[in-house]
């Protein structure tokens, strides 16, 4: 099993969710996060005052999937989240040792 974690631009969330649904993903976890990568922070001016944005608002999407499904899901996220500009985000895939559905006690692929 794999855990796919994607950091995307907030306005791309609807597109990514639709793409994941189309790819057969039935469950995901979404969080509002802040951070920076190569895009770094930047300075904005409002009402004459400059303020530094050190951490850029992003959305984190997490999807659990069975081995073998991760490539299609990653492709779906890339296709739906890309704008071609800096700050589009990142995706990483990690191995998962075990998954348990709390309500039923099912484990492994059955719990996804």
């Amino acid at each position: 099993m794999k855990l796919i974690t994607a950091i995307i631009k907030p306005f791309k969330l609807d597109d990514v969710r639709n793409a994941l649904k189309a790819a057969g993903v039935e469950a995901m976890t979404v969080s509002e996060v802040r951070g920076f990568g190569r895009q770094g922070g930047h300075t904005e001016t409002y009402r004459g005052a400059e303020y530094q944005i050190d951490f850029v608002p992003k959305v984190r999407v997490e999807v659990l999937c069975a081995d073998g499904q991760n490539e299609a899901i990653v492709d779906a996220i890339i296709a739906s989240a890309a704008t071609g500009k800096i700050g589009d985000g990142k995706i990483w895939v990690t191995d998962v040792g075990e998954v348990v559905r709390i309500r039923t006690g099912e484990t492994g692929d059955a719990a996804i």
């Binding site: 907030p10 509002e32 996060v33 802040r34 904005e44 409002y46 303020y51 944005i53 951490f55 850029v56 608002p57």
Partner: peptide
């Protein structure tokens, strides 16, 4: 803060 930062931007 997350929403505030987007709106400020």
């Amino acid at each position: 803060d997350w929403k505030a930062e987007l709106i400020n931007l």
